[in-house]
Design a protein around this nucleic acid. Structure first.
Length: 834
DNA sequence: TCTTCTTA
C-alpha cells in the first residue's frame, strides 16, 4: 500500500505535542489524517495511561473512523479503539482512542471538568465550525487553563486559514499536509440570460454525461429544485444506460441508498443532490460534478425566536468541496453554473453556525458550566448578543435559569438530558403528569426527520398526532403503514425509548394523545396559537402563522406550534402542531395569564371600546365589556382614533375651515403663530383638543365638537383680534359689498368680485401687515372670471380696455365706463343716479 | 411545498 501523505508530517506533529501544549494540523482531503493521526499517538509517554478523544461532527463518521482504525489493528471497535455516539457506544477498559461526536465532549466536560482520564483531544473537521465543535473547544480551553495544563489539544482542519485557531490556542504551531486527490478540471458555465437555472442544469448534465465518463453528481438547494430538474430531464428523455437518482435528507432511506450505491443494472447515475452529498455522504464512481452554486440553510430570527430557511450563493470553500467530489476515484470534471465574475465575489467560507443559529442550547450549557458572561471565554466567533440574550430569556421562561443567568436545579437536569432545552423542559413536566412516554415520542418526532411522505392525493398534514399514532401502531402491531419511512420510524422508536429510560421515572402512564398540544406548550410557551380563522393563528409571541393548505387542524381554536418556518413579511408556515384545550391552558399556564382592562379605538365600531381581558401573551383568552373605563384612558383612545383616521373625522364647517386657513396664512408670515397643517395639528392633539374630549366615546360625539371656538381658544384672545385685522374674513369693496376672502391657498388669498364693483379702487388691497396682496378674480356680470390680477393699478391702465370691449359686446345693457377710476362702482346693471 | 447536523 502506498504511503499516505500524512505519514511525512507525523514526526513533526509528535515532536510538537511532546513539548506540551497544542497544535493545528491543516490537511487537504485524502491525506489520511482521521485514521492515521490518533493511532500515531497511542504510545506517547506523556499520555501516562490516559485516553485520546477524537471528535467527529457526525455519528456515521465517528463509527466508521473507529471501525477503520480497529481493522488496522486487527480488532473490533471497543478494543483499543472505541466510539461513543448518542444511544450507541463501543468502549472498554482497554480503549485508548475514543471517537465521539462533538456533543459528547460537552457532556463529558460537564460531568468531569478536569477530564481526568483524557490526555489529548483531537478536533477533526473543525473547519465545519458547528456550534457543538466551537463550544467543545471553548470548554476544553477553559479546562486546560484552569485544571489540566498537561491536556493536549490538536485541531485538524481541511482548509487553510489556520491562523485564528492557532492564535486561540496560544500561538500553537501549525503543521501543513498536502492531500491526495485526482485532478478535477473546472469549467464555468453560467446560464444564458433568461434561461432558468433548472433548465440550464438539465442541459449541462446531459452534455457532460455525453462527453465524459462516470456518474454525475449535481448539487441543488432543495427538494423542489431537484424535482423540477428531474422532470426537465425526464421530459427530454434519458439515455437507456443512465438513470436519475434524487438524494436529499427527507428521502426514505431505501431511495437514498439507491443514489449512493452502484446501480444494480450497471447504469450510469445522474444524482440530483442537496448539500447532503457535500460532506455527509460520499459516493464512489462520481467523475462529473455539476454545481448550481446555491445552498439552502436554516437561519434563526432573534426577533421572533423562530427559524427560517434561506437560499444563498455557496461559499468558495463549499464550491471547492463539491468540486472535489468528482476526483475521489479518478480524474474528473466540475461544471460551475456561474461566471468567473460571480466566482470572484463569493464569500470565502460558510458562516459559522454560532452566528446564525438558536443559541438557547448554548446558553444552557454555559449556565451549567458556570459562565455568567460568554465574553470571558475564548471564541473564534463569540455568540452574537441578540441571539444569546434571546436564548437566556427562553431559559428563564422554561425555569432553567435565574434572572442573573445562573443555572437552576431544573436547568442542570435539562442539560443532562441532552436535548434542546425546550424539549428537556417538556420531558420534565411530562414526567410529573405521568406522560413521559408520550412526551418522549413527541420529542423524538421533533428531533428526527419527518416520517411522513405525502401520498398521492393526500392533503398537507401538520398534525403531530398523526406521527404519534404511526409510532403507536408500530409499537402495538408492528405495522408502519403506507407513506411512512420505516427506517425513520424505527429511529424515532429507538430515540423515544432511550429518552424515557434516561428519566429516572416510574410514571409511564398510558398515552393520552389528546394531551400532545399541552405537553408541547411546555416546550413552546411562546408558540401557543389562537385561531384567527382560515387556518391562521396568532401566537402568544405576537407572531402570525398559518397552516399550509386546508386540513382538520384549521378548525381548532387553540394549537401549540412546534415546528415552523418563519417568513419575512408574511405569516410563518406551521410545519408541526397539535391542538390544546382552553381549559388545559388555563390550568397549566395560569401563572402566565394576565388580567387587564384595555380601552381602544375600534375602527369598525367608530368609537372607543373598553374591555376586560384575560391574556396569555399576545392572545386574548376571554374578554368582556368593562363597566366604567377610566375617563383619561377613554380620551386617550379617542386621540388614537383621530390619529388613525385623520383630522377628517372632526366636523369641519365652512367657517372652521376658513379659520384654519387664515391661521395658516398668519403662521406662514410669522412662525410665532401656530402651524395649522395636518401633521402639526395631529402632533399636538393633546394640547388643543384633549380638554374637550371628556364625556365623548364615539365618532358621532367627536362630530358634535364646535371647532371654531376650540381653534380660537387655541390661539388666544390677543392673536384672535389681530387675526381679524390681518386676515379678515371679508373685505368691503367700493360698491359697499362685503366679499368673503378665499384662503384655501394660504400663500395666495383670493378676492372674487364683479369687475363693476371695483370701479374707483386704485390699488390692490393688501393684508397680513400689508405684506400679501390679494389675488383678485374680476368677474363678469354672470360671475365668470374675466381677469386675474394682483396688480389692480396696472389692470386699469392696460388690461381693462380689452376686457371692456369684450364685455360690452356680451352685456350691452351694463355700464362700461371709459374711465373706470372715476366711475361709480355698482352691484347692479348700472349705477342708480342719486 | 423543508438545508444539514447533534447531546455519556
Amino acid at each position: 500500500m502506498n504511503e499516505l501523505p500524512i505519514q511525512r508530517v507525523l514526526p513533526e506533529l509528535l515532536d510538537r505535542l511532546r513539548r506540551g501544549g497544542s497544535a493545528v494540523l491543516v490537511a487537504e482531503p485524502g491525506a489520511g489524517k482521521t485514521t492515521q493521526v490518533p493511532l500515531a499517538f497511542i504510545h506517547e509517554e506523556w499520555l501516562s495511561g490516559r485516553k485520546i478523544v477524537m471528535l467527529e461532527p457526525r455519528r456515521l463518521a465517528a463509527r466508521s473512523a473507529a471501525e477503520y482504525m480497529s481493522r488496522m489493528l486487527g480488532e473490533q471497535p471497543g478494543g483499543t479503539v472505541g466510539y461513543r455516539v448518542r444511544m450507541d457506544s463501543r468502549t472498554s477498559r482497554a480503549t485508548k482512542i475514543e471517537v465521539v461526536t462533538e456533543g459528547i465532549l460537552t457532556r463529558m466536560l460537564q460531568s468531569d471538568p478536569g477530564l481526568e482520564d483524557v490526555g489529548m483531544i483531537i478536533f477533526d473537521e473543525f473547519h465545519e465550525r458547528n456550534l457543538q465543535g466551537d463550544l467543545g473547544l471553548a470548554l476544553a480551553l477553559e479546562a486546560k487553563a484552569a485544571l489540566r495544563e498537561d491536556l493536549r489539544i490538536l485541531v485538524m482542519s481541511a482548509t487553510l486559514e489556520a491562523e485564528p485557531v492557532a492564535a486561540l490556542l496560544g500561538n500553537a504551531p501549525v503543521v501543513n499536509c498536502p492531500g491526495r486527490q485526482f485532478p478535477v478540471e473546472t469549467v464555468y458555465r453560467p446560464p444564458a440570460a433568461g434561461t432558468p437555472l433548472e433548465k440550464h442544469m438539465a442541459a449541462v448534465i446531459r452534455e457532460a454525461s455525453a462527453s465524459h465518463p462516470g456518474d454525475v453528481l449535481a448539487f441543488l438547494p432543495g427538494r423542489g429544485e431537484i424535482r423540477r430538474v428531474q422532470a426537465e430531464l425526464e421530459s427530454g428523455g434519458i439515455p437507456a444506460d443512465c438513470v436519475v437518482r434524487p438524494l436529499y435528507g427527507q428521502l426514505p432511506q431505501k431511495e437514498q441508498e439507491a443514489a449512493v450505491l452502484p446501480d444494480p443494472q450497471g447504469r450510469r447515475k445522474w444524482i440530483l443532490a442537496t448539500s447532503i452529498a457535500e460532506t455527509s455522504l460520499t459516493i464512489d464512481g462520481v467523475r462529473i460534478v455539476v454545481d448550481c452554486g446555491y445552498m439552502r440553510t436554516q437561519l434563526f430570527s432573534a426577533r421572533t425566536g423562530m427559524p427560517y430557511l434561506a437560499t444563498d450563493r455557496v461559499s468558495r470553500a463549499s464550491a471547492d468541496q463539491r468540486r472535489g467530489r468528482a476526483g475521489r476515484t479518478a480524474p474528473g470534471i466540475a461544471y460551475r453554473l456561474w461566471s468567473h465574475e460571480v466566482q470572484n465575489h463569493l464569500r470565502s467560507r460558510n458562516t459559522p453556525e454560532m452566528l446564525q443559529t438558536d443559541l438557547a442550547p448554548l446558553a444552557l450549557e454555559l449556565a451549567a458550566w458556570g459562565v455568567q458572561d460568554p465574553r470571558d471565554m475564548l471564541w473564534l466567533d463569540p455568540p452574537p448578543e441578540n441571539a444569546y440574550e434571546r436564548g437566556k430569556e427562553l431559559l428563564q421562561r422554561l425555569g432553567a435559569a435565574r434572572p442573573d443567568g445562573s443555572v437552576t436545579e431544573k436547568g442542570r437536569k435539562m442539560a443532562e438530558l441532552g436535548l434542546h432545552p425546550r424539549l428537556s423542559a417538556m420531558m420534565l413536566q411530562a414526567e410529573e403528569m405521568g406522560q413521559s412516554g408520550l412526551a418522549a415520542v413527541l420529542a423524538a418526532v421533533l428531533q428526527e426527520r419527518d416520517i411522513f411522505r405525502a401520498g398521492p392525493g393526500a392533503g398537507p398534514d401538520s398534525d403531530i398526532r398523526s406521527r404519534v399514532q404511526a409510532v403507536n401502531r408500530w409499537e402495538q402491531q408492528g405495522v408502519a403503514g403506507s407513506h411512512i419511512d420505516e427506517a425513520a420510524l424505527k429511529r424515532i422508536v429507538q430515540e423515544s425509548r432511550y429518552m424515557q429510560k434516561r428519566l429516572d421515572t416510574n410514571s409511564a402512564g398510558a398515552w393520552q394523545i389528546e394531551k400532545s398540544g399541552l405537553l408541547l406548550s411546555f416546550a413552546y410557551p411562546d408558540r401557543i396559537g389562537q385561531s384567527r380563522g382560515g387556518g391562521k393563528f396568532l401566537l402568544t409571541s405576537g407572531r402570525g402563522v398559518e397552516l399550509p393548505g386546508e386540513q382538520p387542524l384549521s378548525r381548532e381554536a387553540y394549537v401549540t406550534v412546534a415546528a415552523v418556518d418563519d417568513r419575512k413579511g408574511a405569516e410563518g408556515k406551521i410545519l408541526l402542531a397539535a391542538p390544546v384545550s382552553l381549559e388545559d391552558l388555563r390550568r397549566h399556564h395560569g401563572d402566565d395569564i394576565t388580567e387587564e382592562t384595555t380601552v381602544e379605538w375600534d375602527p369598525s365600531l367608530g368609537g372607543v371600546k373598553s374591555r376586560h381581558q384575560l391574556r396569555l401573551g399576545a392572545i386574548v383568552l376571554r374578554e368582556s365589556p368593562a363597566a366604567e373605563p377610566p375617563a383619561e384612558a377613554v380620551a386617550q383612545a379617542l386621540l388614537d382614533g383621530i390619529r388613525a383616521e385623520g383630522l377628517g373625522i372632526l366636523a369641519w364647517t365652512k367657517q372652521a375651515v376658513q379659520l384654519r386657513q387664515r391661521l395658516q396664512l398668519m403662521h406662514e408670515a410669522d412662525p410665532d403663530w401656530p402651524d395649522m397643517g395636518d401633521e402639526a395639528l395631529l402632533e399636538h392633539l393633546e394640547e388643543w383638543l384633549l380638554p374637550y374630549l371628556y364625556g365623548i366615546k364615539s365618532r358621532s360625539g367627536l362630530q358634535k365638537l364646535q371647532l371654531v371656538p376650540i381653534l380660537e381658544q387655541m390661539v388666544g384672545w390677543d392673536k384672535k383680534s389681530r387675526l381679524d385685522q390681518e386676515a379678515p374674513t371679508h373685505i368691503t369693496v367700493p360698491s359697499g359689498s362685503k366679499i368673503a376672502v378665499d384662503y384655501s391657498n394660504p400663500k395666495q388669498p383670493v378676492l372674487a368680485v364683479k369687475l363693476q364693483e371695483m370701479f374707483g379702487l386704485h390699488e390692490t388691497p393688501k393684508i397680513c401687515f400689508g405684506k400679501i396682496p390679494l389675488t383678485i378674480h374680476l368677474l363678469s356680470p354672470a360671475q365668470r372670471p374675466v381677469q386675474i390680477t394682483s396688480d389692480l393699478a396696472s389692470f386699469w391702465k392696460h388690461g381693462y380696455f380689452e376686457v371692456k370691449k369684450d364685455l360690452k359686446g356680451r352685456y350691452p345693457k351694463h355700464y362700461w365706463p371709459d374711465d373706470p377710476l372715476e366711475a361709480i362702482p355698482t352691484r347692479r346693471t348700472r349705477p342708480h343716479p342719486q
